[in-house]
């Protein structure tokens, strides 16, 4: 079981950095396919549906893809693409999770061979981690 992860941010740097960080913290389990989809079509801040679609297909191993998005157009574009039905691989799910903490939780969980439900639950559960 290999669940893929896509990170959608308004910033290409944020998406790529969080992808590297989550992968770096994932430990020694199964290698998890993680792809960043950051920035607008013109390279500035924003969202690029084409990048999201390409990223989702690149990490799809047939066991589902978890998508984490930061805010605004990133979230809405993922939702619109999922509503399309045929743009993203079957079993692609937008996960309601904090972007950085959720990405780490998702990669660590996916590296244990967990299924999409478990990966999504772990990412969402990152909301409950209080810092004070």
């Amino acid at each position: 079981m290999t669940v893929g992860l896509v990170l959608v941010s308004h910033s290409a740097q944020v998406a790529e950095s969080v992808a590297r960080m989550a992968t770096g913290l994932s430990g020694g389990g199964t290698e998890v396919p993680v792809a960043a989809a950051g920035g607008a079509p013109d390279g500035g801040l924003g969202t690029d549906a084409g990048k999201i679609t390409a990223a989702a297909h690149s990490v799809d191993r047939g066991d589902g893809v978890a998508v984490l998005a930061d805010l605004g157009s990133a979230v809405l574009t993922v939702k619109a693409l999922i509503a399309e039905g045929d743009e993203l691989p079957p079993g692609t799910r937008l996960v309601d999770a904090p972007f950085v903490e959720g990405a780490v939780a998702a990669v660590v969980t996916a590296s244990t061979g967990a299924d999409l439900d478990a990966v999504a639950a772990a990412a969402q559960d990152a909301y409950t981690y209080r810092k004070t």
Partner: peptide, 8 residues
């Protein structure tokens, strides 16, 4: 192509 929330 829009790149902002108005696109979706």
């Amino acid at each position: 192509t829009v790149g902002g929330a108005s696109g979706p």
